[in-house]
Amino acid sequence: MTIDESDIARLPKVVLHDHLDGGLRPATLIELAAQAGHDLPTTDPAELAAWFVHAASSGTLELYLETFGHTVAVMQTEAALRRVAREAAIDLAADGVVYAEQRYAPEQHQGGGLSLQQVVDAVQAGFDEGIAAAAVSGRTLRVGTLITAMRHADRGDEVAALALANRANGVVGFDIAGAEDGFPPARFASAFRALAEANFPVTVHAGEAAGLESIAEAVHVAGASRLGHGVRIVEDIAIVRPDGGEPDDGEPDVGAEAELGLLAHWIRDHQIPLELCPTSNVQTGAAGSVATHPITLLRDLGFAVTINTDNRLQSGTTLTREMTLLADEAGWSLDDLRDATVTAAWNAFIHHDEREALVEDVILPGFAVPAAGRHLA
């Protein structure tokens, strides 16, 4: 049995890991670049979209991150930030997303003289406008903002304070992002303490470009409630076959068992959600293909997996596309997609009663409707 992409497009979706500066429309980027006097590789929207996907498919996180030089460059005014946020909300709603957590680093948008608070206010105004526009089109969307601090900078305490100051202004959590290897969460220990004391949710980019030590610090030093990516937790999982052979040697893995290390056990035992991004993980070299992406193994082993886009522009993707790829290339069923969506909803950075309403009133009924639309291969 296969699932038709049109059925997936109609499903209610939850995305927990989607970057505001990684989701610009190519045409918007071109217009804003012209206004800012910023040179782009091309001014043709289709060619620019293809350039981003190609440039981001370098195989390393560091080169992937270089593409943001273009998007961040055009997001330095209140008007530009407001427009990008408005269009992001509209595009997510059009993809069937009913709850989205959008993350961005305010410190990266001060090149035009904006204060950190002005950046937050402009983005929030854009989200509000986009949500209202989506509602006119019959789409319901809620957006929660994740304020991000950049790993290589030294503004963790300041950005954490900004997040706390805006918890009644749409901000639902805190994140650190950027070059992972060499910039551990421990650099922001004081910020994470302040957030914990204020009972404020934290997610951390970890286990993408760096391995198990990065994941361990995210959980035990930063106190992360979720892991941004976390795909390299598979390095603490050994697949053992009765015949002593190695997995993927061409022989069937009949009777194979997974042996988890202590960290993998901790992540699974505590059901710490993994914000997995299949296409992006392939682009940065954290996974070989969607077909072999660890998300399927982790799902089968009982980890709390969620499906995410990461950067829709750089990956040329949507949440519908990510789900369709998992169905087509990794054999995911509609029930698998539902379970991952429910997991995402139950681990959103909103209150328990709000999560319950999201699951019971929106997600589960929405997944029940397309059942008759399944297509046999």
Rank of each mutant, 00 (worst) to 15 (best):
A161Y: 01
D243V: 06
C277E: 03
V136K: 15
T71K: 01
A196T: 15
A256Q: 05
L376C: 14
T77H: 10
L32G: 00
A377K: 13
R167D: 08
V123P: 02
S190T: 12
T77Y: 05
N347K: 11
Y104V: 01
I237W: 03
V204E: 06
P201K: 01
L195H: 02
G223M: 07
A94F: 03
G244T: 13
R83H: 06
I131V: 14
G207V: 04
H270T: 13
I233T: 08
E158P: 03
G111S: 14
L48F: 06
L141C: 08
R10D: 14
I176G: 00
R232D: 04
G22M: 00
A56Y: 04
F200P: 08
R25K: 11
D91E: 13
A177L: 03
E129Q: 13
A125P: 09
R268C: 01
L32R: 00
G130N: 08
T279C: 11
A105I: 02
A206K: 00
E246L: 11
P273W: 00
D7H: 14
G69P: 07
G211P: 01
R10K: 15
M75G: 02
D243T: 10
D243Y: 09
T42S: 09
V234Y: 03
G59F: 07
P365V: 06
Q108A: 13
I176T: 08
A55P: 08
A327H: 06
Q118A: 14
R82N: 04
D4L: 14
M150V: 14
H352K: 15
P41Y: 03
D121E: 15
F68S: 03
Y99K: 03
I307N: 02
I239Q: 01
G96E: 10
S333D: 10
R355H: 10
T324R: 01
T343S: 07
A36E: 12
A304M: 02
F188L: 08
D353R: 14
A55H: 08
R25E: 09
G373P: 10
P106N: 11
E47W: 09
A135K: 14
V172D: 06
K13V: 00
P273F: 00
A216E: 14
S333G: 13
V369W: 12
A256R: 05
A186C: 09
E129I: 04
D236F: 04
T317G: 05
G130A: 09
L92M: 15
L61D: 05
V234A: 03
G244Y: 10
T140A: 15
G182F: 09
G366V: 03
H19Y: 02
G373M: 12
T306D: 04
T318D: 07
